[in-house]
Design a protein around this nucleic acid. Structure first.
Lengths: 213, 213
DNA sequence: CACTGTGAATGAGTTCACAGCT
DNA sequence: AGCTGTGAACTCATTCACAGTG
């Protein structure tokens, strides 16, 4: 999503005290082509001023609202392993309106332990926790095989947005958005490119193949 | 990269004792269209048998080689915070040929501490560590602002593949592949979709906008 | 005869280029 | 004069549909 990049660039400009900017400058900062930036923004309904450009603060606010960053997101982390714990403390979340409200694990040895300000609760309580904490986003930091059942349970509990770190293809129930981040896959893609570059120096016959994870 | 998904699906089939498969079955398992799967595989030079299908093990090996998973990847993790530590212990890495060989941090309080089997070393030693440990992939788990200088240093040291978790747009030096995983961005994209679905139920006027992070 | 490999058709997303405001 | 907003051209990826083959 390019909007997030624009927002970052705008915030950077804002901190620097810049009040107005143009598609050229902003596109440069966000690392994209000016034309597509203008198209995105116009599509978004945002009004720049012809001959002048965009008002930084105004545009930033507008994008923030569009991204839903003005509302509070209540996050549940499932899996209290290393990754889950790292995520719960991740600074970038809080500052953008994402609040980690609860943490679950199925391992009895972990249940009851403190992680930061949270106490790990039993995965069996999933439904109750979602309701009680009014969770609207879940993050799965669990082994691959555990992911699908959890997604189904979360969907039943009414969670419509899930970010999964499990290395498994997931069937998302209707109306539920699942995004996957697979760390091994990211490294594999790097490895793949490294091999290609070493062997062929440049574009071999294999291009495309969906560069996305 | 779809190859990684095919490989996962193939390995799953292999463990189940399945010896042969078809583009239909495999595509289903990988969650893609059979046509593109065949196109990918043919492009890759792999030979299936018309009227029969693909030999699971053979194809899996072939893809593994193409992805460079038969060679050893020596990984350096920069940043020994929560995320860095979680990554260093991530089980999915080792099993796919990625070996974390060293860990750096610039915080003197962390330098010298053990993390798993590693001892955290000073970020100032970056060049030396890369050479000595023959690092070929680096993972950045550092605050946003620190990323760009580190990428430049890594590039100078000869590292050509970098995975960054820093929330910053990065200028990749020539010949260096940088992939970014931005956790906040992932959540923002989810939040964005959640808002859209709530308000408009379905495809509003805003589609496209580069669904990739 | 079933299933691969692939040219041709479609479609999505990006870039160009310029008309239209301010 | 300068910069946005946008139709039209283009590029790249995906899907269709079928000829070719074991």
């Amino acid at each position: 999503m390019r909007l997030t990049q624009y927002l970052r660039a705008l915030n950077a400009l804002d901190t620097q005290g810049v009040e107005r900017t143009s598609s050229g400058v902003l596109a440069e900062a966000a690392g994209v082509n000016p034309a597509i930036l203008r198209k995105d923004l116009s599509l978004l309904g945002s009004y720049g001023t012809r001959g002048v450009g965009y008002v930084v603060r105004e545009l930033a606010d507008h994008i923030s609202r569009t991204l839903g960053l003005d509302q509070d997101w209540r996050v549940l982390i499932v899996g209290a392993g290393n990754l889950g714990r790292a995520l719960s403390g991740y600074a970038g979340f809080r500052s953008r309106g994402f609040h980690v409200k609860a943490m679950l694990d199925s391992d009895p040895d972990l249940v009851g332990h403190r992680v930061g300000e949270l106490v790990v609760r039993d995965a069996a309580e999933l439904g109750a926790v979602v309701t009680e904490q009014q969770i609207n986003i879940a993050v799965l930091a669990v082994p691959g095989a555990a992911a699908q059942p959890l997604v189904d349970q979360l969907a039943d509990a009414g969670v419509k947005s899930i970010l999964s770190f499990a290395p498994h293809v997931i069937r998302a129930p209707r109306g539920v958005e699942v995004r996957r981040v697979d760390l091994s896959t990211e490294l594999q893609i790097l490895a793949y490119h490294a091999v290609r570059n070493d062997l062929e120096t440049g574009q071999g016959p294999l291009s495309g193949l969906g560069t996305e994870a």
